[in-house]
C-alpha cells in the first residue's frame, strides 16, 4: 500500500488495460451501449446541422428586407452625397445602395420596354420624372424604425420625397418577430432534445453497470481500492464514446450526401454535404468530446453508487 503511490503510471496502465479487456469481453452489452450512444451523438450532430440550415435560412430571409428612400427631383448632387455619407455613417446601417436619377430612369425603361404607352409618354415628357433612390439595409430588422425616424425628422427631410418604411412596417415587424421566435424556439428545442438524448445514454450506461453491481461488490470484498475498481469502467465509458463518435460520423456521410441537394434547394442554404466535408474535423471533434464526456461521467457516477461503504 505504501509503495503504490510511486506506481501511478503502472496503475494507470493496468486500469486502461482492464478497461479495454472488459470492453471487449462484455460483447453484447458493449454493442448495445454503443448503439444508444450512436443515437445520442447522431441526435447531437443532427441538431448542429439543423442549426446551420436554420441560421442560413433566417439570414437569407433577413437580407431580403430593405427600405427605399425616394428623393425629390429637385435634390442636388451635393445634398445627395451628404445624405449618402451621413446615412452610411449611422451605426444601425449595414449597407447603402444609391441609384441616381439616370440609373433609375434606365431601370424603369428597361422594365417597361414592351409597354409602348409608357415609353411613348416618357419620350413626350422629355424631362426625367424620376427622383434618385437610396436602398438601405439595416444591420438587423429592429433598426429600421430608428433609421426611418432619422431620415424623416432630420435635416434631410427637405430633399426626401418619401420613405417606404411606413407601408412595410407591419410586414417587417412581423417578420422580425417570427425570426426571433424561430431562433429562440430552435435553441430551446435543441437544448431539450440534447438533454433527453444525454439522459437516455446516461441511463443505458447506468443499467449496464447495474448488472455489474455484484462484480463491484466482489472487487471491494477482495480488497481492491475504489479508484482501481472505478478506473476500468471509466476507460470503458471513454471507449464507448470514441467508437460511437466514429460510427455517427460514418453514418452522416451518406446521409448528408443524400440530403445535401434537397436541403439546399429548400432552404437556399449551404449544401449539407459540403458543410460536412468542410467542417469534418470540427464536427468529429465535437461528437468525440460529447461522447467521451458523456461516457466517462456516466460511468463514473454509476459506479460511484456501488462503492459506498
Amino acid at each position: 500500500m505504501e509503495h503504490s503511490h510511486n506506481h501511478t503510471p503502472t496503475m494507470l496502465r493496468r486500469m486502461v488495460k482492464n478497461g479495454i479487456v472488459a470492453f471487449w469481453r462484455n460483447g453484447w452489452v458493449t454493442l448495445a451501449t454503443i448503439l444508444i450512444m450512436v443515437l445520442t451523438l447522431f441526435m447531437a450532430g443532427s441538431l448542429l446541422f439543423s442549426n446551420v440550415l436554420l441560421t442560413s435560412a433566417l439570414t437569407n430571409l433577413e437580407g431580403k428586407v430593405d427600405v427605399s428612400v425616394y428623393l425629390k427631383t429637385s435634390a442636388d448632387d451635393k445634398e445627395i452625397s451628404n445624405l449618402v455619407k451621413s446615412v452610411s455613417e449611422l451605426p444601425e446601417v449595414g449597407g447603402v445602395e444609391y441609384v441616381s436619377r439616370d440609373a433609375a430612369l434606365a431601370q424603369f425603361k428597361e422594365k417597361h420596354q414592351d409597354n409602348s404607352l409608357i415609353t411613348r409618354s416618357l419620350d413626350e415628357l422629355g424631362d426625367n420624372p424620376l427622383g434618385a433612390t437610396l436602398n438601405i439595409k439595416a444591420k438587423d430588422l429592429s433598426k429600421y424604425e430608428a433609421i426611418s425616424n432619422f431620415l424623416e425628422a432630420g435635416v434631410f427631410a427637405s430633399i426626401i420625397d418619401r420613405v417606404n418604411y411606413r407601408q412595410n412596417q407591419l410586414v417587417i415587424d412581423r417578420l422580425s418577430a417570427i425570426l426571433q421566435a424561430s431562433r429562440r424556439g430552435g435553441l430551446g428545442i435543441s437544448l431539450v432534445l440534447a438533454f433527453i438524448a444525454a439522459l437516455v445514454a446516461f441511463n443505458t450506461i447506468r443499467l449496464a453497470i447495474y448488472t455489474n453491481r455484484e462484480e463491484i461488490s466482489i472487487m471491494r470484498l477482495v480488497g481492491a481500492k475504489n479508484s482501481y475498481i472505478q478506473g476500468p469502467y471509466i476507460v470503458e465509458g471513454i471507449l464507448h464514446g470514441i467508437l460511437a463518435a466514429v460510427v455517427a460520423m460514418v453514418v452522416f456521410y451518406p446521409l448528408t450526401l443524400w440530403l445535401g441537394p434537397k436541403t439546399e434547394a429548400f432552404f437556399g442554404g449551404p449544401n449539407l454535404f459540403d458543410y460536412y466535408t468542410a467542417h469534418f474535423f470540427s464536427l468529429f471533434g465535437i461528437l468525440l468530446m460529447v461522447g467521451v464526456a458523456l461516457g466517462a461521467t456516466s460511468s463514473w457516477i454509476a459506479v460511484k453508487r456501488y462503492l459506498k461503504v
Partner: peptide, 21 residues
C-alpha cells in the same frame, strides 16, 4: 464462489494484487 465472471482464473487471483500495486 463469488468469482468475477468476465475474468480468467489468473485474473481473478491477480486483481487484488494489481490494485495493491
Amino acid at each position: 464462489f463469488r468469482l468475477l465472471p468476465t475474468k480468467t482464473a489468473f485474473e481473478n487471483i491477480s486483481f487484488a494484487m494489481e490494485s495493491a500495486g
